[in-house]
Amino acid sequence: MITAETLMGVLLGSAAGGVARFQVGAWVTQLAGTAFPWGTLVVNVSGTLAAGVLIALWPSDHPTSPGLFALLMLGFLGSYTTVSSFALQTLNLAREGKPVRAAGNLLASGTACLGAAWLGYQLTMLVAPLP
């Protein structure tokens, strides 16, 4: 059953995650330019790194605080990461006749995000292993 605590966590986390995504993406794009979707890549990699940390802290069989998990993982990181933007930007690169950039975005995002989630999990398990 979905609780009011979980719903509030998702609501508040989503608002904060959306603002953070916008700010980080704009900052990275301002620094790196628009020839490649660096802002989206940085957001997705940092978000999946954080998700790896959270997964290490909250194993699925022992949720310690459903409201906090909903705030951070479902709300904040769900809104912060930008898989839909990633997909549309990759498609646009391909449609614009830039297949190498499209493939590069696909490969970089997939590899870096999976690697970041794994790294976040591993680092967290080293620092704060669960019993």
Rank of each mutant, 00 (worst) to 15 (best):
72 L>E: 15
54 L>R: 01
102 A>V: 02
84 S>D: 03
5 E>A: 13
39 G>I: 09
30 Q>P: 00
111 T>G: 10
20 A>E: 14
131 P>S: 13
120 G>I: 03
52 G>C: 03
45 V>C: 07
18 G>L: 04
71 L>V: 02
11 L>W: 12
101 R>F: 12
120 G>T: 04
45 V>P: 02
46 S>C: 11
71 L>R: 01
106 L>Y: 08
12 L>N: 02
94 A>C: 05
38 W>G: 00
5 E>W: 06
32 A>D: 14
111 T>C: 09
119 L>G: 00
67 G>A: 09
69 F>P: 02
125 M>F: 03
115 G>Q: 01
90 T>H: 07
50 A>Q: 05
53 V>F: 07
16 A>T: 10
49 L>G: 03
117 A>M: 01
64 T>G: 15
3 T>H: 12
46 S>H: 06
102 A>I: 04
80 Y>I: 01
78 G>M: 01
61 D>K: 05
26 A>Y: 15
105 N>Y: 11
115 G>H: 04
62 H>L: 05
65 S>G: 07
105 N>H: 13
17 G>N: 12
115 G>D: 10
104 G>F: 09
79 S>N: 02
57 L>E: 13
89 Q>K: 12
59 P>M: 04
33 G>F: 01
123 L>F: 04
42 V>R: 00
114 L>E: 03
36 F>Y: 14
10 V>W: 11
4 A>K: 07
107 L>N: 10
113 C>G: 06
57 L>N: 12
44 N>D: 10
72 L>G: 09
20 A>P: 10
20 A>F: 14
40 T>Q: 00
103 A>D: 03
19 V>I: 13
63 P>Q: 09
102 A>E: 08
114 L>Q: 05
